[in-house]
Design a protein around this nucleic acid. Structure first.
Lengths: 332, 332
DNA sequence: CTGAAAGCGCTAACAA
DNA sequence: TTGTTAGCGCTTTCAG
């Protein structure tokens, strides 16, 4: 607790606090000589700006909040890097929170962020209705949604075309000759879950395949869920010949379960995943998947947010939908 | 920008600012009736505490800094969760920064954290000498190192026994009959790299195997590096029969390279990795690896830090070394 | 149990 | 180019 203040520096350097402040903020109208002296004193005394004090008068913290479901879902790390690399250019940092898809946890985190006076928020909302976000809007704190959309609140949004991506995945399976295609869905109620399910359904309909409720199982967006769901599918009298796993973690679960069940991929059953994995080609067999530009989602969201903070953005809220791509490897 | 202050609430509720402050902080010596009235007004006016203002007088931000090399390294996500889950219990949040093993980037981040007045720091230092950390020490901001140690600064440390873990890995290989064992090392200069290399060397010596410099290659702790290093090894006149990959990302690289090279694991070459992967059993073949308790590293570090912040910790700096475990699957 | 007053460390007019 | 002054929104004595 050295606690050197701007006043201490001022006294030592024989100038006024405001002059020290000017030097620190890099204002130009300070005599070079004075400036040098102040800078020396700053260094000598080990002075460090107090961000809280500055924040209180500038009404700006140079901090944004980032709320996601779970950093240990492999979907997020690169997205976070996309955010970080972008905001760093603007001298911003981020407070990171995980919600675990629990909306009460989410609300607690958002409350803290509000109190810490984040300048902006990037959020993957737990559900389309997050009443608390109203408070951000009221205070003019810009919000950018990632991955999922939100209702009733003005917010930019960056995501991918889930319906189309899922459609492409299932279409791929169908063209390979599959008719009994199962889907393992994520947590109910989340936008992405719904959209991917829709894409699945659309593809079936488009190719005249009747939907079978028994082939639609919930995997809760987790490895365990993927394992359980896959095992369930193979308890059916008429098991599927192909599985569309609609997220990352569940795909890993599916692979694990299939190995346990001694089912060979793709001979016994084809598997296609939503979300590519960095190590997808080292899987057994290499995974065919719908790939999302995760880094770009993050960087785009951050850019949008920074534009808002600099009041440079377009007036209208943006809705940016990035493209997915089908990466064909050997699991189908 | 609603900007409702404690004074606004006070006026509306017909009390003094200090009373409002008392209610907000949950002080008990406030008349229940007054308390209720204030609480109502707070809610009605949409008042929200200003954390910066509080921080400035309490000299406490309830925020810690977390500096790691790269969140997209699969080693970190669970570790971060360990930290978060722990600090959340104490109403703390974290500012997360990635250094990419670049010490100048690290210093910039640390400077910002100092300015944002983090109460504590958890860091995986880029190298054993981070002069900037001296400034944290001077200000009495507790530091906990994870994964790697630091010199010249008082700091707690939580890590694993890298020497022993590496020794066990190589020993496993030797007992399987291997004599030409290669190691792919991480970035030079980092503690973990050195320690794992030492474990490798120790094991060779212990079992009377002469070390061959050609079998020690650098993989720079990245997937690309692992690929390159593996390919180099197979350009040798006398290629290794086993590879010890000393980190996560490089192991993935090794798998990729071996597949390209059409080498079969473990028939043509055995592979053992340092760092387990959540999806290790879905690899082709399932990976044998030295597993680290990543979540526990994070939670332990956070607990230690919280103890320091609550001034409850032991006086002496702690050095907690957790155990690794060998998970035998099918790649050896 | 409550209020008045001072002050945390900074910036932003306004004067000089 | 520099200094003086008045806050920013909160907490904390100290009285009452």
């Amino acid at each position: 607790m050295t606690g050197v203040t701007i006043r201490d520096v001022a006294k030592k350097a024989g100038v006024s606090p405001s002059t020290v402040s000017r030097v620190i903020r890099g204002e130009t109208n300070v005599h070079p000589k004075t400036k040098r002296r102040v800078l020396q004193t700053v260094k000598k005394m080990g002075y460090f700006l107090d961000g809280s004090a500055r924040a209180i008068v500038k009404k700006q913290t140079k901090t944004i909040g980032v709320s996601i479901s779970d950093i240990s879902n492999p979907f997020y790390p690169l997205l976070i890097r996309g955010i970080e690399n972008t905001i760093n250019k603007f001298d911003y940092s981020m407070i990171l929170c995980n919600t675990d898809e629990d909306s009460s946890k989410e609300e607690r985190h958002l409350k803290v962020m509000l109190e810490k006076r984040v300048d902006g928020l990037i959020i993957a909302p737990t559900n389309p209705q997050v009443p608390f976000l109203k408070l951000f809007e009221e205070r003019g704190i810009p919000i950018v949604c990632i991955d999922r959309a939100i209702e009733n609140v003005e917010a930019d949004m960056v995501g991918v075309d889930n319906v189309h991506g899922a459609f492409a995945a299932v279409e791929h399976l169908i063209k390979l000759g599959h008719k009994r295609i199962a889907i393992i869905t994520g947590i109910r109620g989340i936008t992405t879950t719904n959209e991917r399910l829709r894409g699945y359904l659309d593809a079936l309909k488009r190719y005249g395949i009747k939907k079978d409720e028994a082939l639609i199982v919930e995997g809760y967006s987790r490895i365990e869920g993927g394992i359980k769901a896959t095992k369930e599918l193979f308890k059916l009298k008429s098991a599927p010949t192909a599985i569309f796993s609609s997220n990352n973690l569940m795909t890993i679960g599916t692979f694990i379960a299939l190995k346990e069940l001694k089912k060979s991929i793709p001979k016994d059953v084809a598997v296609i995943g939503f979300d590519d994995l960095e190590w997808a080609e080292t899987l057994d067999p290499p995974l065919t998947a719908v790939s999302q530009p995760t880094y770009t989602i993050g960087s785009t969201a951050a850019q949008l947010l920074m534009q808002r903070l600099l009041k440079e953005g377009p007036k209208k809220k943006q809705n940016i939908i990035l493209k997915t791509s089908l990466v064909v490897r050997e699991s189908c």
